[in-house]
Computed example of a mutant assay.
Amino acid sequence: MMKTILGLHQQISRYDAALSAWGGSLMSMALRWYVGWQFFKAGLVKVSDWSATLALFHDEYRVPLLPPDLAAWFGAAGELALPLLLCVGLVSRPAALALFLVNAMAVISYPQLLSFECPAALNDHFYWGVMLLALVAFGPGRFSLDAWLAGRRAA
C-alpha cells in the first residue's frame, strides 16, 4: 500500500514540475506582454504630440536631476525601447528593472498622482511595479529570446 502511495506521489510530482515550468513560462510571457504594452502605449502618446509632452515635462512633471527636455527624451525612449525588449524577452531582467525605475520615476515626478480622488491611477503603477519586479526575480521564462540564446550557448 505504501509503495502505491509513494509511486502515485512521484507521478504527481513529475506532472506538477512539468506544469509549473510551462505554466510559469506562460505566465511570464503574459506579464511581459501586458506590462510592456502599457508602457509602449504611453510612449506612443508621448511621441504623437511632442509639444504637449514637452509642456507636461516643463509644467507638470518634476523629474529630479534632469532638465525637462532631457527627461522627456529619456521617458519617451524608455517607454518605447524597453517594452520591445521585454516583449521579445531579450535582456529581460535588465529591461524589466529599467521599466520598474521608469515607473517609479513617473510616480515620484508627478506628485498630483498621490492626491487624486480616484486611486486607480496610482494602483496601476503599483501593479505594474509588482509585475516588473516579478519578472526581475523569476525571469522571462522559456518563451523568450533570452532562453533561446541560453539554449544555443549551452549547445
Rank of each mutant, 00 (worst) to 15 (best):
G43C: 11
L90I: 07
S51E: 14
F100M: 07
M105D: 09
A76Q: 09
R62Q: 15
F100C: 06
P67M: 11
L80Q: 13
L122H: 05
E60C: 01
G23C: 06
E117P: 01
L86D: 01
L99D: 01
L54V: 15
H58T: 12
R93Y: 09
A30Q: 05
I108L: 11
A96L: 03
F40T: 00
A77V: 12
A104N: 07
R32E: 06
A76R: 04
A96D: 04
L65G: 01
Y61D: 09
R32G: 04
S92Y: 02
V91P: 03
W37M: 03
G78D: 08
A96K: 04
F40P: 03
D49A: 08
P83F: 02
A96E: 03
M27N: 11
L70I: 14
L82N: 07
A95D: 00
F40H: 03
L84R: 00
K41N: 09
L114D: 08
P64I: 06
Y110T: 12
G75K: 04
R32V: 02
Q38L: 15
G43R: 05
S115C: 02
P68V: 14
W37P: 00
M27D: 10
C87L: 15
P83M: 07
L122M: 10
Q112C: 01
S115G: 10
L26K: 06
A52C: 00
L90K: 08
G75H: 03
H58E: 14
Q38I: 14
A52K: 12
S92Q: 02
L122A: 07
M29Q: 10
M29A: 14
D69G: 09
C87A: 15
